[in-house]
């Protein structure tokens, strides 16, 4: 336990020092503010309040940005330490390999959590006050977005560890991380859309598509946030149409990223245990 906290604290300290936290906060904040400013225009016409519109836009932004930030945080975790020779030192000390990974995970999730909380928190407050206050429950939506974004980020941090532990070069790990991002948040959805268009009889749309949608942690995250803010009021999206047929609904949708996180952590621990530095 001692080792876990020591490693986590050091990761957080490095995240603060190398401006990772500042940089990713600013990126999230910048994108979020753009959405806040652009999103206030349609907000006037629809009955939904502006903050809710912003939360809906931000959850779509999260699907792209949060996994990217998470993977960029994680790809260096094992491969980079092997490169620099510090993994040998850590593994030579009386700390179990599982504890090393859990410590890094806690540290990286905290780093990501701080960035997401700052970025979205400030954007949410700006949207709230820019529209002259209003319903406080809209801020609950911002809080929900922050918490679920951190869960989504944790999932991709754990998946990033698999990439980082499977290869020996940091460069390869980085390429693998980008490939995972591209597949999970871009190509996967495109493939699903293609599947919907191709299947004429509707079997795919009815029986397979909802499962495949929930299976992807990024899509599951979007589904949950959209259903939570009653997406129908804000506009349609990929999940909106399939809402009724989903195998999981409401909070249960978030089981997908959580299950992925646990699975990925277990798998990367197994790989790390087999590494012979």
């Amino acid at each position: 336990m001692h080792g876990v906290l020591t490693i986590a604290a050091t990761e957080i300290r490095i995240g603060l020092r190398n401006r990772w936290i500042i940089l990713s906060s600013l990126i999230l904040l910048a994108f979020a503010l753009i959405l806040v400013l652009l999103g206030s225009a349609p907000g006037g016409e629809v009955k939904t309040d502006a903050v809710t519109v912003v939360v809906a836009s931000l959850s779509t932004l999260s699907v792209y940005l949060v996994p990217l930030i998470a993977l960029l945080l994680a790809f260096d975790a094992i491969a980079g330490e092997i490169d620099r020779g510090t993994l040998q030192l850590v593994l030579a000390s009386p700390v179990s390999r599982g504890a090393v990974l859990v410590g890094k995970f806690l540290g990286h999730v905290t780093v990501l959590g701080i960035a997401v909380s700052f970025g979205y928190g400030i954007a949410g407050l700006v949207a709230f006050f820019a529209t002259g206050g209003g319903d406080l429950s809209a801020l609950v939506g911002v809080g929900r977005l922050i918490v679920t974004s951190i869960i989504l980020g944790a999932t991709f941090i754990a998946i990033g560890y698999i990439a980082s532990a499977s290869v020996r070069q940091t460069g390869t790990a980085a390429a693998l991380a980008i490939a995972i991002w591209l597949f999970a948040v871009v190509l996967y959805d495109l493939a699903l859309l293609g599947g919907l268009l191709a299947s004429q009889d509707g079997v795919f749309a009815r029986d397979i598509f909802p499962w495949l949608l929930v299976l992807n942690p990024a899509d599951a995250f979007r589904l949950y946030n959209m259903s939570a803010i009653d997406a129908a009021a804000v506009g349609s999206n990929l999940g909106g149409g399939a809402g009724a047929a989903l195998p999981l609904s409401g909070l249960a949708t978030m089981l997908s990223p959580i299950a992925w996180a646990i699975l990925a952590l277990g798998l990367s621990t197994l790989i790390l245990k087999r590494i012979r530095p």
Binding site: G3, I14, T86, L89
Partner: peptide
């Protein structure tokens, strides 16, 4: 152990690096 080549995190101070390994070793 001291490996032939090791690059400690550049952002940490020397004291933080040594303290890190001291904690790991208990």
């Amino acid at each position: 152990y001291l490996p032939e080549q090791v690059a400690f995190p550049k952002m940490l101070t020397g004291r933080e690096v040594v303290r890190f390994y001291a904690r790991l070793k208990g």
